[in-house]
Amino acid sequence: MTAVTCIELCKTYRQGDQEIKALDHASIDIGEGGFVCLSAPSGGGKTTLLNAIGGLDIPDSGEVWIAGKRIDNLGKGELANLRLHKIGYVFQAYNLVPVLSARENVEFVMQVQGVPAGQRAEKSMAILKEVGLQGLEDRRPAEMSGGQQQRVAVARAIVSRPALVLADEPTANLDSKTSDALMELFVQLNKTHGTTFVIATHDQRVMGYAKRLIKMLDGRIVDDIDQQAA
């Protein structure tokens, strides 16, 4: 079974009288445990594709399947449930709820899921330690650096062990050293937990970590490179 399957996805935006094809018959297949980079220049359709996979956005046509289940025809509530339980999300920026501390941000999703308090605390402390934020649990986002904030976001994305993590330009606001540290964290999580990663980026350095590199241009898939063989 594949983790993600997209079949002939199309999405058109209108801007004035201009039509922009953000997705143009894009089809991809990602197996379980995959570590995939979506690369495209800015405006290439990466975010649109990730949003379609995550059920945040509904494509105009085509099908999206997550873990053997078709999702593009689900209702808003079911999609919310899907994101809550099956998918971890890391965004480019503005990942955290400003009024919650690092730990509370991580616990937030679990709390919404209804995980009991004891278990929540245990898991969040463990995961923050795993991403290297021990001792910073009680800081609020404003009191942390960009890299630290992104780690909290990653911790939150993976804490309830989703099968799939979607990351949209997670390193765009980070310096190269922090970027490397974050990517190494992803690689390690992929190895130890078998979590599938789909990372949208236009950063060469990030692409280097991927097992598989899917290139897009103007909403089309233009190349699909297996980097493990190399």
């Binding site: 965004f91 709820v97 999703v109």
Partner: peptide, 14 residues
């Protein structure tokens, strides 16, 4: 707007 969007993206119901 953003954090409300974020929470919804994370799966919080409207």
């Amino acid at each position: 707007v953003r954090e409300i969007g974020l929470m919804m993206a994370l799966g919080m119901r409207p």
